[in-house]
Design a protein around this nucleic acid. Structure first.
Lengths: 208, 208
DNA sequence: ACCACTATCTACAATGCTGTAGATTACGGG
DNA sequence: CCCGTAATCTACAGCATTGTAGATAGTGGT
């Protein structure tokens, strides 16, 4: 009754050849698939069976690598926060417009805004919150660079970073809705781009 | 074998007296409970049995009133959007600082930001998106009131309304996280308040 | 070549949640 | 005071999802 009893190609499913990945590669592929599902269908769309199907494996394999569904989700969050932090911290010399553009692309296109929002909604894993200390650091970095000797209150700088964070986050989530409600179909992305640039100028301090 | 056979207080559960509500009252109580669960425990916390328990009814009663879980959720979204729109449209004469304060209170404290975010995340019901046309209206309203003859580009005004929307939305969701990461425990609410006022001044046009 | 390790699979158990069926009871109108 | 409507209940069916157990099969090292 062993599997190899029949060699006929059309009767027993004949167990398609197994592909054996390295643990790292397997985890990466699984997280990629989970992330894609999250971005496309929202939080509740991250189901073990669907993720497994997208990767081309059986769902217990995911449990093998992450222990539980929650383990997988936690790993996904960790990876997302790391990428976001890297993107924020990389070359602070760039213009704030460039930084905002880049961060927005990570938040919006790659779906981290959705991931983050969902994480916040379902009682965040307590570890995710800690990562936000980077915003404080970022604010202080910008402050010491540009405006320390100009006598600007440090809270002013921190608030600007905070505004950038919440505005980008909100735009990433609500942007598609807002644009769609504008009636236009094609040039709506252009509106969002203009808005982001307008916002960048506002935050960069176009005010004096 | 009828229910009233035994009057002993400690044996058969004795079917506690039924309270018969009007359909409107029942729906209201159910939506209240569902909203509370959503705000407290996130999207996945809206379970028929839990909602029913909070109201003090059996869960099929909810199905009776809303047809399905999705029907209940849809009604919840509709009600929230209505309230939000009312809050936004009410007395446009107020100062923008007051408006921001009020909207923030609706979004943040009452948890509509969470509700809205969740609605957006779980592939919005296509009808919710339409409601956002009110933001366009709001922008145009502000524009015609104050700055029409001042020669300000209308997109400038629309963008400010848009900024207010996404920033308040983002702050309502991320605010607690940002404040907690700041290390302080008590005066963090004060920081958020200062931030909101700072934001209000910025949006109102403190820039010339 | 063989062997140990473990990534992967199939099959199943367990749980939890939505939805259904039919009985029961509160309330308003005749 | 009776009766019909419908709001509510209990009990159960059905389904989807997570997680477990044990077998199977690639892969690297000896």
């Amino acid at each position: 009754m062993s599997r190899s009893e029949r060699k006929g190609p059309a009767e027993a499913p004949a167990a398609p050849p197994r592909r054996r990945r390295s643990p790292e590669e397997a985890r990466r592929q699984i997280l990629d698939a989970a992330e894609k599902l999250l971005v496309e269908g929202g939080p509740e769309a991250i189901r073990l069976q669907d993720v497994a199907r997208d990767v081309g494996i059986a769902h217990p394999t995911i449990l093998h690598h992450f222990g539980s569904r929650e383990g997988m989700v936690l790993a996904l969050e960790r990876r997302a926060m790391e990428r976001l932090r890297d993107e924020l911290m990389a070359d602070r010399e760039a213009s704030s417009e460039d930084v905002l553009d880049r961060v927005f692309r990570v938040l919006g296109d790659q779906g981290y805004a959705r991931l983050l929002a969902w994480s916040v909604l379902s009682g965040l894993p307590a570890e995710t919150g800690t990562e936000f200390r980077m915003l404080e650091e970022l604010g202080e970095a910008y402050h010491s660079e540009q405006s320390r000797e100009a006598g600007i209150d440090i809270e002013e700088t921190v608030f600007r970073v905070r505004l950038a964070a919440v505005a980008l986050f909100g735009e990433a989530l609500l942007g598609p809705l807002l644009s769609r409600s504008a009636g236009l179909d094609d040039p709506e992305d252009e509106v969002r781009t203009r808005f982001r640039h307008w916002l960048a100028r506002l935050i960069a301090g176009e005010e004096e």
